[in-house]
C-alpha cells in the first residue's frame, strides 16, 4: 500500500524559473490496485513517480509504503520496495553488461551484494524460463550485451527486471512512449500480464487516454501539481475517451476556456 499525503515540491525555488511540480498531493493506493495517471505536460505526473521513488526529497508532505515512512530515504534505500520502468528504454538496463548480468543485478534488488559469483548456473536456468514466455528469443542470448537489443526488447527486459523481486510499488513512467505502436502494444500487454500475475500495486503514467482506460482499475488525472479527477471500479470501466476529455475540459475550467478562445 502506498500513502502519499500533502506532498509538495517546487523546483528552482526562489528563482524566476520556480515551478510548482506538486502542490499538495493526497493519494492512497491500496495493495494490488493498478492506477493509471494521466494529465497534460507539466501536470506533475512524472514528479509524483520520482518523489515516490526517492529521486528528490519533497518540500512538504510524507510518503509511506506499506505503512513505513520513507520520506527521508534516498532512492537506493527504497529500492527494495520500489520497481521502476523508465520512459527512456536505455535508462532501465546496463548496455555494457549482458542480459544475464542485468537480470542478476535485478534479482538482488535491495539485497546485500557479496563476493559470490554474479551469475550462477541455477540463475541461468531460471532466467531462461523467465525470458522464454516473452517470445523475443532473449532466452538464447543470455550472454549478449544488452546494448545489442532494440528499445522494445530492452523495455520488456526492464519490465521483467522490475518485477523479478516483487516490488511493493511498481512505477511505470510513460514506459511505452518511446516505442513504435506495435512494440508499445506488446509491452502494454506484457505490463498487464506482469501486474496481474504478481498482483502488484502499480502507478502507470501515460499520455495515451486509451491506455489509461483499458489498463488498471483506477484512474487519476493530474493538473498543475494536483489530482483533479480520481475514478475507480465501475465508474472507470464505463468511461470512454470522449467522457474523459469532456471531464478534463470541465475540470480544467476557466483557464481552459480562455485557452480555447485563444485558439479559435
Amino acid at each position: 500500500m502506498l500513502t502519499v499525503s500533502g506532498l509538495t515540491k517546487a523546483f528552482n525555488r526562489g528563482s524566476v524559473n520556480e515551478v510548482a511540480a506538486l502542490s499538495g498531493i493526497d493519494l492512497t493506493v491500496e495493495t494490488g490496485e493498478f492506477v493509471t495517471v494521466i494529465g497534460s505536460n507539466g501536470a506533475g505526473k512524472s514528479s509524483l513517480l520520482a518523489a515516490v521513488a526517492g529521486n528528490f526529497p519533497p518540500d512538504r508532505g510524507t510518503i509511506a509504503i506499506d505503512g513505513r515512512d520513507v520520506t527521508a530515504w534516498p532512492a537506493h534505500r527504497r529500492a527494495h520496495l520500489v520497481g521502476r520502468v523508465f520512459q527512456d528504454p536505455l535508462k532501465g538496463t546496463c548496455a555494457g553488461l549482458t542480459i544475464e548480468e542485468n537480470l542478476a543485478l535485478a534479482s538482488r534488488r535491495g539485497a546485500c551484494r557479496g563476493f559470490g559469483p554474479g551469475v550462477g548456473s541455477a540463475d541461468r536456468t531460471r532466467f531462461r524460463q523467465l525470458l522464454a514466455p516473452l517470445g523475443l528469443g532473449l532466452e538464447d542470448r543470455l550472454r549478449d550485451p544488452v546494448g545489442l537489443l532494440s528499445g522494445g526488447q530492452r523495455q520488456a527486459l526492464t519490465l521483467l527486471m522490475a518485477s523479478l523481486v516483487p516490488p511493493r510499488v511498481l512505477l511505470l513512467d510513460e514506459h511505452t512512449a518511446a516505442l513504435d505502436p506495435k512494440t508499445a502494444g506488446q509491452i502494454l500487454a506484457l505490463t498487464g500480464d506482469v501486474v496481474t500475475a504478481g498482483r502488484l500495486t502499480t502507478l502507470m503514467v501515460t499520455h495515451n487516454m486509451n491506455q489509461a482506460l483499458r489498463l488498471g482499475n483506477r484512474l487519476i488525472m493530474m493538473h498543475q501539481g494536483r489530482i483533479i479527477l480520481d475514478l475507480c471500479g465501475e465508474e472507470k470501466a464505463k468511461l470512454s475517451v470522449e467522457d474523459l476529455l469532456a471531464r478534463f475540459y470541465a475540470l480544467k475550467g476557466e483557464e481552459l476556456a480562455s485557452d480555447k478562445m485563444l485558439l479559435t
Partner: peptide
C-alpha cells in the same frame, strides 16, 4: 564478475539503473 563487482560495473554504466536496483 562477483555480485558486488557487477554492481560496481553497473554504477559506471548506468547510475540511474543501479540506483533503482538499490
Amino acid at each position: 564478475s562477483t555480485a558486488f563487482g557487477q554492481a560496481m560495473r553497473a554504477a559506471g554504466d548506468n547510475p540511474t539503473m543501479i540506483t533503482a536496483q538499490g
